[in-house]
Write a protein that binds this DNA or RNA. Structure first.
Length: 200
DNA sequence: CCCTGATTCGC
DNA sequence: GCGAATCAGG
């Protein structure tokens, strides 16, 4: 692959958007992130601040001027990710958010779409209060990823009700080979000794 | 461990 | 010019 005009343009665009080199490389295809970074530097746009390609500008550190508030809300992310065939987990058919058939028993519970090892319900269980608190805390910071945004290294802990809009996945980095982030691993894989030995 | 960008240097 | 290898952080 060579750096055609189009590819360079896409590179510039994505880099300016704040995409990481690896993401750009994936998008372009046929190049590694090293290639992307190398090209970025050769193009002289290592600085992602608004397109000014200043070859040399030490700029100690005195710039009260804000660059600009880039609207990088994940909510507006159009999911332009390349659908890589990940072996991990990709439930193909999201449950219909709304059953358009009122004829069905209204009292029925919503279907659960995930084809993945669903974690135990964290609610009524007797897990370490500390762990629960940690989960509650971490869920505030959840990246709220959709199904398509999940990778092997993102926490796949579901949050909310799948039948409503209030449903997403934790999405925080799962640093191990685990499917969840540390906090959720804590409540997912309980050593099955919650408080049995609490007596003393 | 995973990731990030930065730099070097043989090609 | 290119990018793998390496470096230097998080």
């Amino acid at each position: 692959m060579s750096w055609t005009d189009e590819r360079v343009e896409l590179l510039k665009k994505m880099w300016t958007e704040g995409q990481s080199a690896s993401q750009i490389a994936k998008e372009l295809g046929g190049v590694t992130r090293n290639a992307v970074i190398g090209k970025v530097h050769r193009l002289g746009l290592s600085n992602r601040t608004g397109g000014a390609a200043e070859p040399a500008k030490p700029e100690p550190k005195a710039k009260p001027e804000k660059v600009e508030a880039k609207a990088e809300k994940p909510a507006a992310q159009p999911a332009a990710e390349a659908p890589e065939p990940k072996p991990a987990a990709k439930p193909a058919s999201p449950a219909p958010a709304q059953a358009a058939t009122p004829a069905v028993s209204p009292a029925r519970k919503a279907i659960i779409p995930a084809g993945q090892p669903l974690p135990p319900q964290p609610s009524a269980n007797e897990i370490d209060p500390a762990a629960l608190a940690k989960v509650g805390e971490v869920e505030k910071h959840a990246k709220k990823l959709g199904l398509m945004e999940l990778t092997e290294r993102t926490c796949k802990w579901p949050i909310g009700d799948p039948a409503t809009e209030e449903f997403w996945f934790c999405g925080l980095p799962s640093q191990s080979g685990k499917p969840y982030c540390e906090a959720h691993v804590g409540v997912a894989f309980q050593p099955m000794s919650s408080r049995r030995d609490r007596r003393r």
